[in-house]
Amino acid sequence: MIDGSLVSARLLVFRVGTLAWAAEVDQVREILPRLPTTRIPGAPPVVAGLVNVRGTLVTVVEGWRALAPTETSQPRPPEDAGSTLILEVASGNGTKDGSGKKLVGFTVDEVIDMVAVGDTTLEDRGGLPGVDPTLVRAVGRRNRPGGAGGGAGGGGESGKDLFIVLDLAALLGPVLTT
């Protein structure tokens, strides 16, 4: 089922590993280059560490470890390539300022595009091979070829134009709860 809140959303589409993913633009505070991280001892490997975003400390989750752990055999891009998305996610136990939102960084290999949901077709497709179904809110298809699909040969049906709308709370919530 596609949840109603997505109907009028704008989505940021990005690539992690071989797949394209998307998050609601409203949840993306900013897009930064990869920042030097400080390891947090004891934290799970999916946590890259702490970064300094203009004076605020933000925990960064390593995108490929979270979304494409099975692709570890693939060659990884150099550490300083890609981007860090600063996301604002709802947090169950609330935060100091009472907003109930936390900032968390998320590294992606490449930011591809921004799409309005109207331009795309969202489908309910829970079961994608190799993708944890609890993280999937919907599956979208960009109408135009291009972006990551590059020269996919005009095949609008090319699998490369598929993207998965992420459930950020489900993905990041468990990591952040202490």
Partner: peptide, 27 residues
């Protein structure tokens, strides 16, 4: 001294973090 959202599993030996002169955080 700044607080940070310690992710799950963080060793219980940190009271916060700070930003060093080069802009990189230190616990």
């Amino acid at each position: 001294v700044k607080g940070f959202d310690a992710p799950q599993g963080t060793l219980p030996v940190f009271s916060g973090a700070t930003i060093m002169g080069d802009g990189v955080p230190a616990l």
